[in-house]
């Protein structure tokens, strides 16, 4: 399993942390706190959920079990979404996060079709304004851009959106919201290019596996069985 090719990088690039996440499925209780805190942090509209927890029943009655699988964006090292974007509106940042330029994106949704993890969402412009007072008054400063009020026809409405490991939090030295709020401490976050980091050591565990590894997308989210 190849997670980050830090050894191939020059000294200059080494200084940029290569963000990665480890999710210990044994510790996940399926409480959906990550999903909720993500929605609160990123103020995502209805229908846009950067993080979801998939619940699947396995086995046959009476030997059944409920398996929880939290699914943020994998921030793939060879991302199919970036490969297909006709206008290069989505691309890898130096720190490994897959970003979207909302002002360049034409909204063709090819990336949504191409993502093997269903991690991309279309912002149709829906709003929680019926449930929440002033829901449209402010948006999350995604990518460090203050877009002011949420208004019809203005990006990110009619764009594609996705999890970016809470880039705006990383930049001020905080962990992504889902990592910070996980009540079972099932999520770990750190620099995969540093072999001594917690994430690097957990990723080397024999319990580690990747989603759809056969597609060779190189996910930066590593799961522990």
């Amino acid at each position: 399993m190849k997670i980050a090719n830090a050894a191939e990088k020059t000294d200059d690039q080494k200084k940029i942390p290569q963000w990665g996440m480890v999710i210990d499925l044994k510790k996940c209780i399926g409480c959906d706190t990550c999903t909720v805190s993500c929605k609160a942090e990123n103020r995502t509209p209805p229908g846009v959920t950067y993080n979801v927890v998939l619940q699947n029943e396995i086995g046959a009655y009476p030997n059944v079990a409920l398996v929880n699988l939290p699914r943020p964006c994998m921030q793939c090292d060879r991302p199919p979404c970036v490969q297909v974007c006709p206008v290069k509106a989505t691309y890898k940042l130096d720190n490994g996060v897959v970003a979207i330029d909302y002002d360049r994106c034409i909204g063709c949704r090819y990336c949504v079709v191409a993502c093997p993890y269903g991690a991309r969402y279309v912002d149709f412009g829906e709003s929680y304004s019926q449930e929440m007072l002033g829901a449209n008054e402010i948006q999350s400063p995604e990518y460090g851009v203050d877009r002011g009020k949420r208004e019809k026809g203005k990006s990110p409405i009619n764009n594609v959106r996705k999890c970016i490991f809470c880039l705006h939090r990383l930049e001020r030295g905080e962990e992504p919201a889902c990592v910070e709020t996980c009540i079972g401490d099932a999520r770990f976050f750190g620099d995969l290019s540093n072999p001594d980091s917690v994430v690097s050591r957990l990723a080397a565990s024999p319990r580690a596996f990747l989603l759809k590894e056969e597609l060779n997308t190189g996910p930066r989210v590593i799961y522990l069985k």
């Binding site: 297909v84 206008v87 509106a89 360049r104 994106c105 909204g107 090819y110």
Partner: peptide, 22 residues
Amino acid sequence: DLGHMERFWHALWYMNWTSVLA
């Protein structure tokens, strides 16, 4: 079908060498 019809010209202006659609 484009989410942002007003940006249709981006499809010719910007190029992604790995995109079939481009």
